[in-house]
Design a binder for these strands. Sequence first.
DNA 1: CCTACCGATCGGTAGG
DNA 2: CCTACCGATCGGTAGG
Lengths: 208, 208
Amino acid sequence: MTQSGADGAAVGQSGTTRTREDVVLAAGRLFAKRGFHGTSMRDLGEELGMLGSSLYSHVQGKNELLVEVIGRGAGMFNQVVIDAYAAGGSARDRLRRLVHGHVITVVANIDEARTFLFEARFLPAKERAQIVAMRDDYERAYRETIEAGIAEGSFTPNLDPGLTAIFVLSVLNALIRWYRPSGERSAEEIATEIGRFVASGILAEGVR
Amino acid sequence: MTQSGADGAAVGQSGTTRTREDVVLAAGRLFAKRGFHGTSMRDLGEELGMLGSSLYSHVQGKNELLVEVIGRGAGMFNQVVIDAYAAGGSARDRLRRLVHGHVITVVANIDEARTFLFEARFLPAKERAQIVAMRDDYERAYRETIEAGIAEGSFTPNLDPGLTAIFVLSVLNALIRWYRPSGERSAEEIATEIGRFVASGILAEGVR
DNA sequence: CCTACCGATCGGTAGG
DNA sequence: CCTACCGATCGGTAGG
């Protein structure tokens, strides 16, 4: 009898030695599906075709995995902001890039995004504080962009920029709740539809 | 030494016998803050000034508490839909009532709303299926209302009703993430701002 | 609502 | 990556 994945568990690639990368990715999958506290090290070992205790040759502990998965999520979103600012253009262009980049990123890294948004409260105090700060920065980028859009005349002047930033991010973050890779709409289509909703709302022209 | 709440734990009303209602409310508080799997029966007992094992004279088990808390959340949201439909009026009026009722309900029952939206996946299979069905009904009410609004000419005809329902609900459901009772805006103000955002978006008039 | 307890499972370690 | 194990904690029960 071989030692790997012969017992029917959902194993990535059986017959191969697992790397730390495999462990982190599998942790993202399980944390996203069952939650951090709903995932045991034994569950995670089973997902990888090994014993829970064997994971400790790859990582120091369960918390480290949560920190790593959420750190990756945070890094991705941070990069979206950097890219959107680096591209230049009007505030309205920048908001379009922020929205588009957010959708693409969530769709391509759904497990990290879910863990980031659902499990961050279970991070150790120090790392939790860092993630909260990062999230504040992210929200600030949206607020600044909305303020700049008002200043340039693209956006309605009587908007509350802080609240509006929250509303836009609400639509974006909810993606982790309803997006399914098997769904009929592509990431591009979703980004376009969200952009349209955020821009114009639902009221017909001329109605008030 | 007395038997209740003399050891510094956060107890509701010390010196009084707790009821099943107290237990369910405390469970909502802890499930909302630490998650279902992050809350032990001993934690819950401590919150109420009793031992974890004593809770079993009020409820049959931990799962029953999750079912009860989420069931209350589901019932509240269901009532909002019933009231909004019963009030009659145009589709646009109905959407206004749905949004207003949702905000008021979340603000007044934040723990149940959080548990409903974050912990439903940990429900036993049968109850989870019921809650998913209820959530589908809720979404359908929004979709129908948007379709009716398009038909009556209030809403933009090129809207995708299903996707738009999701977007509106995204803004509403995100309330459980950012709302703080100590915040500066009242539930009424929040409902008004969300209504404005959903109705008109952020683009300035005449801009396209 | 408490005392006293149960078997199961948890995160994690020593040593190979 | 496994064997063999640790102390702590889990949900829950019997009996009062």
